[in-house]
């Protein structure tokens, strides 16, 4: 028997609702291990900076390399079975982001250590907010939490305590959010 108008509308609404839930859940599941990885590395980066301040530059180079390799490996393991082997769009997106941040830093330098330590978490936090607008509200909440806690640390804490605070912000918010997204 052919469907009525109201039955067809109902079915279309069900399809849209389920599609949105599935899309969000898929995004959350893909992001969860990345967040947990970067949360652990963030903790190591700021923790290492606090205890071995003279080697901060090397520590962050190591953290960035380890994070890039880890992210690439996680992304490769979770890609669709029919996806292309290497996406140049993703590569150039990272390159463009790196170029944008480097050029802004070149204009506004010099920075204090605390300002540098604040800038990247703020960029990360806002990136999650922007992502969340498209991929799901949990990213928005995670991003706002990172931005809020980072700004609190910058304006309310001394530079020494700020580094420890950021180690805490990284581990608790990113790892915690990763676990939260995984259960979505």
């Amino acid at each position: 028997m052919p469907l009525s108008n109201s039955e067809a509308k109902l079915a279309l609404n069900d399809i849209a609702r389920m599609g949105r839930r599935s899309f969000n859940a898929h995004g959350y599941a893909a992001a969860a291990p990345q967040l947990m990885l970067w949360g652990a590395l963030w903790f190591l980066g700021y923790g290492g900076t606090y205890f071995f301040h003279a080697y901060a530059g090397w520590i962050w180079i190591g953290v960035t390399i380890a994070g890039s390799i880890g992210s690439f490996w996680i992304g490769k393991a979770s890609k669709p079975v029919t996806a292309p082997k290497f996406s140049w769009r993703i590569f150039f997106t990272w390159l463009a982001a790196l170029g944008a941040i480097s050029s802004v830093l070149a204009i506004f330098a010099p920075f204090t250590g605390t300002q540098i330590g604040t800038l990247f978490p703020l960029i990360t936090g806002w990136a999650y907010v922007f992502l969340g607008v498209w991929l799901g509200p949990r990213f928005v909440m995670a991003g706002m939490l990172i931005v809020g806690l980072t700004l609190f640390g910058f304006f309310r804490l001394s530079p020494e305590h700020f580094i420890l605070w950021m180690a805490f912000v990284g581990s608790v918010t990113l790892i915690g959010t990763g676990l939260w997204l995984r259960r979505a």
Binding site: A11, I15, M18, G19, R21, S22, A25, H26, P80, A83
Partner: peptide, 24 residues
Amino acid sequence: LKIMSALKALPAGTQLEFVRLKAL
């Protein structure tokens, strides 16, 4: 219909685990 909607919302070729589909 729910199963098909959940799968169609993902990029082509994406695999969805049974447990995740069950929850959805």
